[in-house]
Write a protein that binds this DNA or RNA. Structure first.
Lengths: 348, 348
DNA sequence: CCTGTTGCTGTAATCGTTTGCAGTCGAAGT
DNA sequence: ACTTCGACTGCAAACGATTACAGCAACAGG
């Protein structure tokens, strides 16, 4: 059935279709891409020949000719972090509506790997890149260099010293909601468990936490600011540190993401610290597992679909005009999701 | 600094480098790819010019010429399932060692989406495809068609009616370990919570469960075989069904994956069914969250790195020889990880 | 001096598709 | 009858990199 010649894996080319239909490759191309004028008879003949041979376009050749791949690259710090995978899912949906596909890369939380990924996406002529930078400063050069070559938008996190589009949430506003809620639940002191200040999320969230806690007069001791990484293990370690301190843990532990919060609640169980009775705990991101914690986590829900849609829109816009317009920084306001790890109506 | 001409986004081409260095494109290519004889002087001149212009190869053009992209495609049923993401991570590592990259696609658990993804990967001339088919029968045609065109290996799951390489675990042997362990812990009756029999994992695991339970004389009622999907929600629903039945749940609930098991333990807490006191629960896959369950899940650890390494090896082998060799079916034996959701030493 | 060899470099074809340009042909306008 | 036009169609040149082949110089051996 299939013709197998040449070294290209036996694929049928446009000229074989042309030969079989007795026309030129130009006509075949016009029929198959639906561009240009072609008579009904030709259209039929070509279509028939293409079907018979099982022709499929070679998008490499097409991409070379068009310098457009209909593919967008995305780089995330860690593909095993559920927040990023659900973000990826949202982005994929948003792209699907434009007939584009996603080329996903994992930076393994390492700026050097990240730089390699960005370079290789650029070499592959993707139409644009969506990146959530893994490091708040070290990711800078590679991101900026890539942005100089093709449309790029940063998602969720932002790296300093770069001038590109960005879409994410307003971390400060989110933290205000969190602190207000904890305060209403009776918390008068609070700890913060985040990651080392190597990315914007962490910085911003800590900043928001500090500011609002100060506004409300909540006690925040220096030794209650615990910075490690975005992992369950780190959350567990943080609780160990807090529990060991004289006076025990504060009234609330605010976590920079849900993984940390899951670690915190788990460690609290192990240390027999009642949540939310003795300590209230909050997360961030609202990953699927947040509701599975014991107790289920109160957390900040990121509007992933909105974030993804805006990012895709920005990329499309950037691809459109040659002149780089002014940069857009879009901060969406997230929503607090109250579950069982905090006290809703004030102290019982 | 950068020259911006043409419609390719202002990228520097090999001929611009050649012009600047005062040599032919052939020489530039030879220098840059390190193939062929070039004098030291030329090498220096070309290198210098390339650096000055910030040249980067256009891998689209290279791919067209070489009909090789150094890219492998991977299609997974759901990118939000932690098992698959960690498998992806392993595959990426394994490929990295060969200087290849991964093009990841999400099939959204839908064979039609899957078929589209496979076709588009093939159109993009990836060197090979790794797929974990989302459906046990409906994925067949697309998978087979793709396998006819280029090297393909199925991972973890296997779809009926196809003739391709496969790497996964021996589900039957795994289930034997699970049942033996539960039996040693005193279980004399057991339920199975899996997904509808639309994929091989589910089928095989159920088969293994049935066989070994029968061997050991464990009671297995028809209404204890609960099939839904691979999700936490389904695990919760399954417990609701079991708890409502007269006589209550059996001594053990064997789950086809960890997500289901997490739902099961969660629902048991809600229904005040003691785990492992009243009911023992097991999972499958050993995702990171398995140890976070309350209680931590006893589960089957899949040797992800081995699986990934074998898959990459098979692809490389298939890419090497033109004649398709005999198919390899590699079943690795997984390891049981005992945690707190089962009784280790027999009934207390 | 002629031939063969080695070492380097350039010319041009090639991968598969798209598309500007030019050519053909029949129909319509003058 | 002679443009003019429009609808089609084909020719051939791109896109950017790789590479077989040929050409050239220098040099060794006969």
């Amino acid at each position: 059935m299939q013709q197998r010649r040449g070294g290209n894996g036996g694929r049928v080319t446009i000229s074989e279709v042309a030969e079989r239909a007795g026309v030129s490759t130009a006509t075949v191309s016009r029929v198959l891409s639906g561009r240009g004028q072609v008579s009904a008879e030709m259209r039929r003949r070509v279509q028939h020949a293409a079907d018979a041979l099982g022709y499929q376009v070679n998008s490499i050749a097409r991409a070379l000719r068009n310098s457009r791949t209909d593919t967008v690259g995305m780089v995330v710090p860690s593909i095993t972090n559920p927040f990023f995978t659900s973000l990826v899912e949202s982005v994929e949906h948003a792209l699907g509506r434009d007939g584009k596909e996603l080329f996903l890369c994992d930076a393994q939380s390492d700026p050097r790997v990240e730089a390699r990924r960005l370079a290789s996406l650029a070499a592959r002529n993707v139409d644009g890149i969506i990146v959530s930078p893994s490091h708040g400063t070290e990711s800078g050069p590679a991101v900026q260099e890539t942005a100089d070559r093709l449309p790029l938008v940063q998602l969720d996190r932002f790296v300093g010293g770069t001038d590109t589009d960005w879409v994410g949430v307003d971390d400060i506003a989110a933290m205000r909601q969190v602190i207000d809620h904890l305060h209403a639940g009776g918390a008068r002191s609070a700890a913060f468990a985040g990651s080392r200040l190597t990315n914007s999320s962490s910085e911003q969230r800590l900043e928001g936490f500090r500011r609002r806690a100060a506004d409300l007069g909540m006690a925040v001791r220096d030794e209650w600011i615990l910075l490690g990484d975005y992992s369950v293990e780190w959350g567990e370690a943080a609780v160990a540190a807090l529990a060991a301190a004289p006076g025990g843990p504060p009234d609330a532990i605010v976590c920079a993401d849900d993984l940390i919060a899951l670690g915190v609640t788990r460690a609290c169980r192990a240390h027999r610290i009642d949540v939310p009775g003795r300590v209230q705990v909050t997360g961030f991101d609202n990953i699927e597992f947040a509701r599975l914690g014991e107790p289920a986590l109160t957390t900040v829900d990121q509007p992933r679909d909105r974030i993804a849609a805006e990012a895709v829109r920005l990329l499309a816009a950037a691809a459109g005009d040659a002149a780089p317009g002014p940069r857009a920084h879009i901060a969406l306001v997230p929503r607090l999701v109250v579950r069982d790890s905090t006290r809703a109506g004030g102290p019982e």
